[in-house]
Design a protein around this nucleic acid. Structure first.
Lengths: 131, 131
DNA sequence: GGATAGTACGTTATATCATTACGCACGAAC
DNA sequence: GTTCGTGCGTAATGATATAACGTACTATCC
């Protein structure tokens, strides 16, 4: 069954959850958000997340084992993520150097399928606070 | 207790294991390698790995949940990892753009603590094989 | 219109990765 | 010789992810 959004029913539900919270959630946090619905088991969440990642609507944040909506503002083909260890916010960012690295690797014969750039530290707000 | 290498006893053992295999291992793979020694529980492995990471001797490969010796050849302050999905090899690589990204982020006020760049795909060998 | 292939589904069980909590042993600093 | 920091071992648990199974629906093809 396909919904308006061209996602399967479960993927559509999970998409909505991620849209509402607007930050990365783990699969089990998503599962918790969906208590009381027909989504009752981890595997249902993981399956839907796979679909969403394949269709480019969701990114996986490896270092958090979490999933976040793609913000669709990329200037580059792949975004990076800024993760603040203090306040926990995660922000997508672009840097043209990401594409440069990717093409240099391609030039060297490595066929890039996926590229993950994750930077953790202190965000601007938390840093100034921490004076 | 400290050994010659200035590592704790358990960290020293785990360092040796990683040195011998020369590829990333998960904590439980390390544990398995150490069957029959005094290292019997996951927590012992994770503790030692923390020490090794803190001292910069080991990197964590986030997308594999695995740990690998630092090859110490970095031209840049942080290496990237090339992960072949076909043969499973993992190769550390340098790209000056990594440092550039890091300094641009610093310039924008984000205090970088850790940066992880992981690229998966097909390595040169597997790619030519896959013709 | 029946066969068949593809895709998503739900359920159960299990595999894999990581940490918490506790108390003991030892050496350094005072 | 007491106190403190650090590493240790053991047990239990928490958190993340997948395997294996069969069912339901849709599209396509002959």
């Amino acid at each position: 069954m396909r919904t308006r959004s061209n996602l399967s029913a479960n993927a559509d539900e999970i998409f909505s959850v991620l849209q509402v919270v607007a930050r990365p959630l783990t699969a089990y946090q998503i599962l918790h958000e969906l208590e009381g619905t027909t989504i009752k088991a981890p595997v249902q969440v993981y399956r839907a997340l796979s679909q969403l990642m394949t269709s480019g609507k969701v990114h996986r944040v490896e270092s958090l084992n979490a999933f976040v909506l793609c913000d669709r503002h990329h200037a580059t083909s792949r975004p990076g993520f800024l993760i603040c260890k203090h306040c926990g916010t995660v922000q997508e960012f672009d840097d043209e150097a990401i594409d440069e690295i990717s093409s240099r690797l391609a030039g060297a014969g490595f066929e890039v399928e996926n590229l993950s750039l994750e930077v953790s530290g202190l965000c601007v707000a938390c840093r100034s606070e921490a004076v």
